[in-house]
Structures are given as structure tokens and as C-alpha cells.
Amino acid sequence: MAPLPAPEPFELLETIEVMQARKIRFERNRIKLPLGVEGTFGLIRHPGASLAVPITDAGRVVLLRQYRFAVQARLLEFPAGTLEDGEDPLESMQRELGEEAGYSAAVWDSLGPMLPCPGYSDEVIHCFLARQLTPLANPPAGDEDEDLEVLEMTPAELDAALASGEEWLDGKSVTAWFRAKQRLGL
């Protein structure tokens, strides 16, 4: 998997406004782009995240149906979570897989990083394939604001749900599923 492209930094001329939220920071900056154009741009600073495509030994895909307040709907997603300060992406995902889906995995393969919204955010999501799953007898508690249901689907059922549009799968999960299918030869 190719690494992210080399940065071409912009020149920060002025920070006009900053708003800190729970996991993100919004900045409105006056900048000079590498091509020389100056302007005011909004930017969401994000600490990064990890995501896993968990596959059971029976070949079923573990997903979450999770409520997302921004779109006021329940979406199909793979387990994922925001990186804690200084946390390794794989360690973060191992923790999140237990908290959100109730599994641990013996085999982890990198599916590479992805940029979910590069037009306005610096977030990088590190994607993994998790295999040889073991259900946890006492899964650790997740975040109190997470409203989710754990589901299992066959790869064909997931593909059919995506193709029909009856289920919404967020962009990070679509990308990770595509990469996982390539890795698994599906």
C-alpha cells in the first residue's frame, strides 16, 4: 500500500478563529497556497483514527449499525475510533474492536492509510484487516454516547446492501471494504 503523498505545506498568514470541540479543532486561517493564491480557508484538525474490517473464521464480515447525529441516521460501518494522544494506530484499533464489536483478533494486516475528507480536514484513517477473531467474554465498555448494534454479513450480503442503496455505508468503510476484498481475493 502506497504511503500518503509528501506534504507541500501552505504558508500560514493569519489564524482568524479557532474552536475546540471534543475530538476536533476547527480553524479559520488566512493562507497562501503552494501555487501562490491567498485566501481564507476553514480546516478541521483531527488527531487521526483507525478502522478494522473484521472477518470471522466462517468468512462473515463484522459490522456495526451506528447512529450518527450529523446525518440523523443509523449507518453500517466497520469498527473504528479516534486515536488517543500518542497512541499507535494498531493499538487503538485493537482496543476499539473489543469495545465496539466485542472481539479480539490474532491476525492484523495493514490496508493502508486513507484521507476521508481532504478538502477540509487533515484526518488520516489507518485501515486494517482483522482475522482469527475471538469473541470476548467480558468486552470492555465503549464510549457512553455510542449507539450501535453489532451485525454479521456474508461478503455477498454486504455487496448487495451497498449496491442496492438500502443500507448506507460511510465512505471510510467503503474504501476499507474495497481494500479488504482485494487483499482477500474476493
Rank of each mutant, 00 (worst) to 15 (best):
F41W: 12
L43K: 15
L43V: 13
I44R: 14
I44D: 04
H46P: 00
P47M: 09
G48F: 05
G48W: 10
G48T: 11
S50C: 03
V53L: 08
I55P: 02
D57Q: 12
A58S: 15
A58L: 15
G59K: 01
R60I: 07
R60V: 08
V61W: 11
V61N: 09
V61K: 14
L63N: 10
L64I: 08
L64Y: 02
R65T: 11
Y67K: 02
F69Q: 14
R74P: 01
L76G: 04
L76Y: 08
E77S: 09
F78Q: 00
P79N: 09
A80S: 15
A80G: 15
G81A: 13
E84D: 15
E84Y: 15
D88Q: 15
P89F: 15
P89M: 13
M93R: 07
Q94D: 09
R95S: 07
G98F: 10
E99P: 00
A101P: 00
G102P: 00
S104A: 13
S104Q: 12
A105I: 00
S110V: 08
S110G: 14
L111E: 03
L111Q: 05
P113K: 14
P113C: 11
M114L: 13
M114T: 13
L115P: 10
Y120I: 08
S121C: 13
C127S: 09
R131F: 00
L133Q: 06
L133D: 04
L133T: 03
T134H: 14
L136T: 01
L136M: 10
A137C: 04
A137P: 02
N138M: 05
N138H: 10
P139N: 01
P139H: 04
P140M: 06
P140F: 06
P140D: 05
A141W: 06
D145S: 14
D147T: 07
L148E: 01
L151E: 07
L151M: 09
E152R: 10
M153P: 02
T154G: 02
P155F: 11
L158C: 13
L158W: 04
A161L: 09
L162S: 06
